[in-house]
Amino acid sequence: MRNDEWRLLDLKLSSYAASTSLTSTLLKLKSEEKIPNTLGLFTFERPSACLFYYNDPEKELDLDFCRQKDIEIGRRDTGGSPYWADPGTLIIYFWFNRKQLPGFPETVAEAYRFLIGASAQAISERFGIPAVYRPLNDMEVLGKKVAGHTVTFLGDACRWGSGPQVLKPRMDLMSRALRVPPEKFADKEAKTVEARVTNFEELLGRVPSFEEVKQTYVSALERAMKIQFQREGYSPEEKQLVEEETARIFSEDWLMAMTERRKLGDPLSAEWARGEHALKVPQGPLIRAVVLMDGKIIRNIFLTGSVHCVPVQLVEEMEAGIRGLEAEEGVLRRTVEDFFRRPGVQVPNCSPENFVQAILTAAGNAWKRN
């Protein structure tokens, strides 16, 4: 396959949650240059709700409702907000070596702008609707979200994901399955999930075919990156590795890793005062800080939300660096800034000050309750 000919996978999977084993496996293989640059187009047989790395499932999903309605739950290995996908959703993934594309952005934030911008332009031209990029990682039409996105860097490999809603979603299920905190809407006109999202069927006033939406994305990426896609299948090695990864991504240890009980234990049995605060960064992530305070000392801390960061474990490492510190602005700022200054670290549309503010407010709430 020539350098300007990239592989295209077009698959129907059981659910978006089930696709997480594939997306993580292909990113690892691409970082090791064991697979060609690849575009994946995925549709699904059943609905699912997918957590991202720093989402607390007990706070951001109605787990009982999901079980009752047979809504499959998954968890991704990158930053973002919980995402709904059903048989009306098209999920697009793109695994490639970013160093092979002259001029491709070096930062996650600019990669979002480049890739979403190219897709929005193609959708506007093809369907006659005013699709635009909205920072950090959304595509909007007339102020409503029509697709969410992720970008992950692993070495020279980049994985880009897009989730356009082609047909009307099962809003009766989606609005119950996702527990969207009110802070999430702080920088948006819409204040509910129903008011925030839209879909191609609603925008066009007709039922679009998945094929025309797929072809629009394929054409947009071919034009933006000066490449061509060739339809191919899995290799036997890829198939085996994906099957092996599936057991891990559906394990209780992986799905529930970011619950407060697992991270902090039972705070009610501790002598320390608990405080919590959620902060929405304008055109950036939601940061939720939970702290256990022993006087002025942060004995334990748990940071969740929709933070996008490179490396993905950065926020967990930051937690470890903060435990045992005094909840004092200067101390916290110096500590968090040290993490942000590490070589290769990226936390798009988010600053050390945002984390410090969330942590200090949580500490203040703990003192008020003590």
Rank of each mutant, 00 (worst) to 15 (best):
N3G: 08
E5D: 06
W6N: 07
R7E: 07
L8Q: 04
S14V: 14
A18G: 12
S24C: 09
S24F: 11
L27H: 07
L29G: 05
K30I: 14
K34H: 05
L39R: 04
F44R: 04
D56A: 15
E58L: 12
K59V: 03
Q68L: 14
I71R: 00
E72R: 15
E72K: 13
T78H: 05
G79S: 00
P87W: 00
I91N: 15
N97W: 07
R98E: 01
Q100E: 14
L101K: 14
G103W: 04
S119E: 03
Q121K: 15
Q121T: 10
S124R: 14
I129M: 13
I129Y: 13
P135G: 12
L136V: 14
D138W: 09
K144E: 08
A147W: 05
V151R: 04
F153N: 01
L154C: 08
C158P: 02
S162L: 05
G163I: 02
P169R: 00
R170Y: 06
M171L: 08
D172Q: 02
L178V: 02
L178E: 00
K184W: 15
A186G: 05
V193A: 13
V193C: 01
V197P: 05
V207Q: 14
E211H: 10
E211R: 12
K214C: 04
Q215Y: 01
L221S: 10
E222Y: 15
E222C: 14
M225C: 11
S235I: 04
L241E: 12
L241K: 08
E243V: 04
E252I: 03
E252M: 03
M258T: 02
M258L: 09
M258E: 05
P267Q: 03
L268Y: 12
A270W: 09
W272L: 13
E276Q: 13
H277P: 00
V281T: 10
I287A: 04
A289G: 07
A289T: 07
L292S: 09
D294W: 08
K296N: 13
I297S: 12
R299D: 10
L303Y: 00
L303T: 04
T304S: 13
H308G: 04
C309T: 06
V315R: 02
E317M: 14
E319Q: 08
A320L: 13
A320Y: 10
E329F: 09
R333E: 08
T335G: 01
F340C: 00
L360Y: 09
A363R: 01
G364N: 07
A366T: 03
R369D: 01
N370W: 15
